[in-house]
């Protein structure tokens, strides 16, 4: 599940994210600063489970285990005599390419030291929170350009900002 930062971004200049050298070269030739970054999968964004087959109906289903809690109270069970375990599985919360392990940030022209920039597509995979079986990951961010690197405002990824009480 996507998490978008809650920050006044309307007046911030944007940082694009590209995934091909053609795009990199097009922006570089126009004078944009290009920052390459490796895409590193975050173990915290993985969910594990199993594929089960209903022995009576033949239907396949995926569950975290044979016995798991339900959101609206109670538990669900997939007993062995009724469900055959087919194989363990792992799934990653955020859609990522299997073809390349890098991406590049394209900064707006003439970024100023200390300038806040809005990054619309975060290269880093950040787990913000979990909601039951859903992994909530950041998809954008705000960073300050220091002349050589983007320093992200990591406090914006704070899961404690996720709750309202009243």
């Amino acid at each position: 599940m996507d998490f978008n930062v809650n920050y006044p971004c309307r007046n911030l200049r944007g940082v694009k994210t590209v995934f091909s050298l053609d795009d990199v070269n097009e922006y570089a030739s126009k004078g944009h600063v290009v920052l390459f970054e490796k895409i590193k999968l975050n173990n915290k964004l993985y969910s594990t489970g199993f594929i089960f087959r209903d022995r009576e109906t033949g239907e396949y289903t995926q569950a975290e285990s044979r016995h798991f809690p339900l959101q609206y109270r109670g538990w669900a069970s997939l007993p062995e005599e009724e469900f055959e375990e087919i194989c363990p599985v792992r799934s990653y919360a955020r859609k990522r390419s299997l073809s390349i392990d890098w991406a590049a940030y394209i900064l707006p022209i003439d970024p100023q030291k200390g300038e806040e920039l809005y990054v619309e597509d975060l290269i880093e995979d950040v787990l913000v929170a979990e909601f039951w079986s859903s992994k909530i990951y950041a998809v954008d961010g705000v960073a300050v350009w220091d002349g050589t690197a983007l320093n992200f405002k990591r406090e914006l990824f704070d899961s404690r900002k996720c709750h309202i009480v009243g």
Binding site: M1, F3, F131, S134, I136, H163, I164, V165, G166
Partner: peptide, 10 residues
């Protein structure tokens, strides 16, 4: 009634 709401609750 007082509620605790998760902003990420769909």
């Amino acid at each position: 009634a007082c509620l605790k709401i998760n902003r990420l609750n769909p």
